[in-house]
Amino acid sequence: MNDSQTDNVAVPGLGRVGRASLQQRVYEELTKSLIHGAFAAGQVLRMQAVADTLGVSIMPVREALGRLVTEGALEVMPNRSTRVPLITEARLDDLSRARCLIEGELVRLAAVQINAETVDLLRQQTQACEEAFVRLDAEHATETSVLNNDFHFTIYRAAGSEVLLPIVRSLWMQSGPFVRASAIIYGRNPSLTAVHHHWALIAALEARDAEAAVAALHADITQSFDLIRADMKRAQDD
């Protein structure tokens, strides 16, 4: 298959967008797909294929990809193509550290002001996530990622920080390949689930115990990253 043919192949994980605010809508669609782990590490995003999938011209796609490169969610290859960054141990450590630091502060803030209605919503989201883990496989890997994102950002919005929230969103964009990789590992190991950390986090928030809430969050983040580390080590040893 030549390059012109591969350029016309639809990009999984993307839906068509309308014409209103085209540049922003393309960026938001790509961002959503990155956050939800729709793209694999190392996946090349060809502009023409993305444009065809979204039903737009090349220009807004080029601008959106460039913006995502600037934000660290994508990277430019020597041949000028754009790809999702590879998973490396150094990147694992860096993202894990940054997420625990920033998201931990948001959880600390949320513990002070979260209300009963939000706690009830978190329970519903965790129940849905728990059910999704039961049917988790490669085909449904994105489902758990979407539900997990909904859960975490319900907490982060409750923190009320307009400064920290976009920083976390950027970290989640960069974490997309890791979200996908961990979902695949969970799918291969039905006995594993991260949902118990969600329940612990809810209990701590309801009790307004900020330290316990932060500890539960850190356990939630590091479990998935540790699973990827272990999987990488097994692959190297084979």
Rank of each mutant, 00 (worst) to 15 (best):
F133T: 03
R46H: 14
R16Y: 01
G187P: 03
A128H: 09
A204N: 02
D120Q: 13
H196T: 10
R83W: 01
V112Q: 07
A159C: 08
V134C: 06
A40Y: 09
M173R: 15
I87W: 07
Q236I: 13
A132K: 02
V56L: 07
R229M: 09
T154Q: 08
D209V: 00
A181W: 04
A200E: 05
S21Q: 15
A200D: 09
V134Y: 09
L192G: 04
A73S: 15
L201C: 12
R46S: 01
V17S: 02
L217W: 02
E105S: 10
Q127I: 12
E71H: 14
M1W: 11
G15A: 08
S81V: 10
A49R: 13
A159G: 05
T53Q: 05
L109T: 00
S57G: 14
E103I: 04
L147M: 12
N2S: 14
D238Y: 11
L92K: 06
D237L: 14
S170F: 00
W199T: 04
D209M: 01
S224E: 05
A216M: 01
E206C: 04
N148L: 10
Q113H: 11
E139T: 12
P78T: 09
P12W: 06
V179K: 01
P177V: 05
A38P: 01
H198D: 04
I155W: 05
R97Y: 12
T126P: 02
E143W: 08
T118P: 00
E130R: 12
H196I: 11
C129Q: 11
H140A: 10
V44A: 03
S191T: 15
M47S: 15
R80N: 14
V168I: 09
Q125C: 09
R62Q: 15
E28Q: 12
A51K: 02
L106N: 00
P166F: 11
Q124N: 10
W172Q: 02
I184P: 03
M1P: 08
N115V: 10
A40C: 11
M59Q: 14
E131G: 05
Y27S: 05
F153S: 06
R83F: 04
I114K: 00
N115L: 07
H152L: 13
P166H: 08
R157N: 13
T88H: 12
E63C: 09
T142M: 10
N8D: 10
V195N: 00
